[in-house]
Design a protein around this nucleic acid. Structure first.
Lengths: 141, 141
DNA sequence: GTATATGCAAAGCATTTGCATTAAA
DNA sequence: TTTAATGCAAATGCTTTGCATATAC
């Protein structure tokens, strides 16, 4: 009975086994799965779930703001259900690993020069090499 | 005789009409074109240029650090040749417009908690609604 | 009972790749 | 002349969509 599922119910969503499984897979912090990974995990609970349903459901969750997308280089999009605690990401250019970074002191995101845009959010991603990839990858081919 | 072209020559690149055209299209600040757009523009100078060549060339430019990629929602990647002056981006969720934002006071990007990652760069993108889209888009369908 | 979610398979789009040909150096 | 770049077309990978069927409410 995850928080996510509770909120979905409040929104009047029909709770199907597929959606329950997806919500369960996404629950928790530090979870950054691709659609494919969500599919594989959900499949262990609901074997008949289809990849299309996973994609469609994720898309809806993103649209309603319950889940956020995390672009990771050219690779597939990752999905992050931790939208309650604002945070940034740190990714490895070599292996694609991804961890959360909680801003301390909450750097001001105010834009003096917002160019007339109505800013509603920021995406901050740090790129680098994770402990496992440091060194080996330091010298690219 | 753009700066970009000069640097490519220094790197020992073979300068072909196609590459010259691509470099010319990308020259300057505040240019954020998609591969398709680079293709269309370059075509006016070199009609026989192929989209594959544009993609391949852009990929190499990115790999050598002369051009940076700017992800923009789900849409096609934009290419930005302004790698000399560090800056961030501001995009419109409605129309996809994109402008440069130069950080004032240079906010420190130091990560106390870098989780052991060797950080080599940051991508900061502000999302919102541009002047033209504010209001109209405030109430999504 | 009715509106909505599902699975399947096909389509879509951006991007990459294989390979024979062409051209820069 | 040699090595690398090009164009073409086919292939790839991720994601979306159409539609008939199944199901939550």
């Amino acid at each position: 009975v995850s928080e996510l599922l509770r909120r979905l119910r409040e929104r009047g969503w029909r709770i199907t086994p597929q959606r329950r499984a997806i919500a369960h897979v996404l629950a928790g912090e530090h979870v950054h799965l691709t659609a494919e990974q969500v599919f594989e995990s959900a499949r262990s609970t609901v074997p008949e779930i289809s990849l299309a349903t996973v994609y469609n459901t994720l898309k809806e969750l993103v649209a309603m703001g319950e889940v956020s997308e995390v672009a990771n280089g050219g690779g597939p999009v990752r999905f992050d259900s931790n939208v309650e605690r604002p945070h940034h990401h740190l990714t490895c250019l070599e292996c694609g690993s991804l961890v959360d970074v909680y801003p301390e002191g909450e750097r001001s995101l105010s834009l003096k020069d917002s160019h007339g845009y109505e800013v509603v959010g920021v995406t901050i991603t740090y790129h680098g090499y994770c402990p496992d990839c440091t060194g080996e990858a330091a010298a690219p081919n």
